[in-house]
Design a protein around this nucleic acid. Sequence first.
RNA 1: GGGGGUGUAGCUCAGUUGGUUAGAGCGCUGGCCUGUCACGCCAGAGGCCGCGGGUUCGAGUCCCGUCACUCCCGCCA
Length: 599
Amino acid sequence: MDADFPELSPNVYRDTWCGQVLGDRVDKAVRVSGWVHRRRDHGGLIFIDLRDRTGVVQLVFNPDEAGGSFELGHRLRSEFVVSVVGRVLTREPETVNPDLPTGQFEIHVTGAEVLAESDTPPFAIEGFNAEVGEEARLRHRYLDLRREPMQRAIELRHRLTTSMRRFLDAEGFLEIETPILTRSTPEGARDFLVPSRQHRGSFYALPQSPQLFKQMLMVSGFERYFQVARCFRDEDLRADRQPDFTQLDIEMSFVDSEDIITLNERLMAHLLGEMGIDVQIPFPRMGYDEAIQRFGSDKPDTRYGFEITDLTEILRGTEFKAFGGVIESGGAVRGINFGRRELSRAQLDGLIDDAKELGAKGLVWAFREGDGWRAPIAKFLSAEELSGLNTAMDAEEGDLMLVAADQPAKVAAILGGLRTRLAERWGLIPEGENQLTWIVDWPMFEFNADEDRWDALHHPFTAPSGEFDPADPGSARAQAYDLVWNGVELGGGSIRINSPELQSQVFTALGISLEEAADRFGFLLEALRYGAPPHGGIAFGVDRFAALLAGVDSIRDVIAFPKTASGGDPLTGAPAPVDDVQMRDVGIALRKPAKPGSA
RNA sequence: GGGGGUGUAGCUCAGUUGGUUAGAGCGCUGGCCUGUCACGCCAGAGGCCGCGGGUUCGAGUCCCGUCACUCCCGCCA
């Protein structure tokens, strides 16, 4: 494992790491302890691969050398914990194992002791049958974590957070803890609630992020704060979402966006550099509107093309109702040229299903053929329209074009989603390339049609750019920035509002009355009255960051004890009912009987 | 909340149109084996086919429901 693992101070269990049984130990007596990784029992000669955190070393039990320990060697089974003494010898050339760092050496056991026996593990810790279902892995997570990939992932995560702390410490940041039991602020995600025993009927909430605390720390004059902070959101899970997750949370005073962006570029270059990834700073920046236009996403993966082309003007007034109707009602028609591809009819139908899954009413596919299209809808389009479309999408003979029509935001989301799916499916994403991009110039608000109100795109404490007109929230821009790495949102932040008046105006624009604002966030508004410096910050998703660095698809693979997609933990059985006494203590009664399955 | 996928031995999986006693590899147990390292050879144990109901002479297989896991949409300021 780690080549520069620290020297071991000898104790009763060992004086040498398994991974350190190398040339300088030859002919020396050593004591090692660890787990039985694999046993090869030849009857008259027994080989044991012994494993500790640093690696694996071969033990040889020979009746001529091992004496009474030979019998014990016979009894050893997978994952027994043993301590052995023996002499390190160089292996005969023909018995060297080139796949093992310690493969030129072995320990000839002269004495051995079983420190702990083990039941037969439910799945293999090592070896070629390494594919194990995730549920089994989570039920016995302590065993799963013994496995090499998990050991490496957890170690990588440690190196990442350590590296964050080192960099930020050197830049004058203080790591300050903020409460886990705090107050519900019913914006944003659903809160996890904790009933209060001492204040019956009242609840703590677990923080969705330390946002308000870090702003108050700026009011307190700490100027540079960070925290590797646990955050909690009671929403449905995904491969990249857990109900409790970790953020690197940063806040600074007397800064503008530029200061935060440049500091974080240096932070990223430092972190990635330590992980062996070289990146150029400064990172390119892209406006939010441009990202949506060209890539259909606020976290565009710029490692590959297939950008989105707007076709609305070409098709304005077209005979084809599905397009013309949408355009008349203020919608847009956009398309992507996916290049020359052979697809079966079933595959093309599959693309339509993909589009529908992404919320499309339909999807038009077409191949360029001569000056026109080979497509089910080709006959509804005029020759001028077809050639205009081919030109706009830069289509060459045989190129596959996918076209969708809907309201602009929706068509962008559909084609953006399709673009990533197809790039993944056809293996069109360049490996080993790293694109870090700032998305800047965000709108302050987006209109929520269902609730007939404006919602903050970032959060309600984000400072607007320039003059703010509460009467026209749609045109307000935010001093916000997201950092996107290869199509994954690594983190985002903003300059915050440091004036209570402006903060109140933003609440008003969001339809939050002053009474409501005072009730929910009064403590922050009050803090802002006592000399709040200009301040801003950013937060990064540590789990996602670690998963990307580890090259795994799910953040569960970089979390020691993660939860399943339904928010449960097969290891502890959480969540679980509690007994009546506990319920009574906190003054809680269930409205309905507990769900039968959940116990 | 909605959609897709999966559920058979400890693990990973196969199981034909519904047909007699449900299989494989690995692991496990016992025996043999002094240079293996995915050790080898021989023998053996191991099954609520997720659960409940239905159709049928007969269900791992078909139907309905349900639970769990997983991916996606909604949701995640």
